[in-house]
């Protein structure tokens, strides 16, 4: 599904390149649940953003379902992104001015889904996460866990094949966090959605089918060996 080759990203500070990612090579199969681990500043989020096409590397090649992402036209890449990728953030990032229903609906607006269809899809999603009663509330009226549920519902509404989560439980208490991780596992196992999460927590990483460790912008050697197995 995803093939990264020689991906590097750096910033020039005082004329010298300061590497955030250095020569990353990574293959991810469809249906995997991958956890990216590593200390602060190791480049986890940058890697996730590159996979999510929100950021560009300075060097390297990225194939998504066999298509070279960086050789595509901007519009084509946007379409690919809209159809296939859902994003979940640590700080939920709901739009404050929109209520739960409208927040979940937003991605559909950008895919020109018809109004009646949108209604049905959002309704299903509300049902599924048991938040029908909260559909008219605004983000500020929800607890963190509830907000993250909305965030996940929003990420799933367009039926993506790849879910990217940047420390999804980072702002939640352990019970809420566990629930979210259970949900991820279920999504991965029952619906076959590929999930890549960035996490600090060993425990959360255990939910996944594979994990990689980043340090100073490189994938650690011993884990890389594991991958090749």
């Amino acid at each position: 599904m995803i093939a990264l080759q020689h991906i590097s990203k750096w910033y020039n500070i005082g004329g010298k390149p300061n590497f955030v990612l250095k020569d990353i090579n990574l293959n991810i199969q469809e249906g995997e649940f991958l956890s990216i681990m590593g200390p602060s500043g190791s480049g986890k989020s940058t890697l996730l953003n590159i996979i999510g096409m929100l950021d560009l590397p300075n060097e390297g090649r990225y194939d998504f379902f066999g298509q070279s992402v960086y050789d595509m036209k901007e519009k084509h890449r946007q379409d690919l992104y809209k159809k296939n990728i859902g994003f979940i953030f640590q700080a939920y990032h709901l739009i404050d001015e929109l209520n739960v229903y409208e927040n979940i609906e937003t991605p559909l607006l950008y895919q020109n889904v018809k109004s009646s269809e949108r209604k049905a899809m959002v309704g299903d999603m509300l049902d599924r996460f048991n938040i029908v009663g909260k559909k008219d509330l605004f983000p500020s009226q929800l607890s963190g866990g509830q907000q993250q549920l909305v965030g996940i519902a929003r990420a799933l509404i367009a039926k993506p094949r790849l879910l990217l989560a940047d420390e999804p439980t980072g702002n939640l208490n352990s019970k809420q966090g566990e629930e979210i991780m259970q949900l991820f596992k279920q999504l991965n196992e029952e619906e076959g959605i590929t999930i890549i999460q960035v996490t600090h927590s060993e425990k959360n990483a255990e939910y996944g089918s594979r994990k990689i460790d980043l340090l100073d912008g490189r994938i650690q050697q011993h884990i890389k060996e594991n991958i090749s197995l």
Partner: peptide, 11 residues
Amino acid sequence: KEVGIKKVTGS
């Protein structure tokens, strides 16, 4: 923030 989220959700 709103701009960012909208772009992430495909705007």
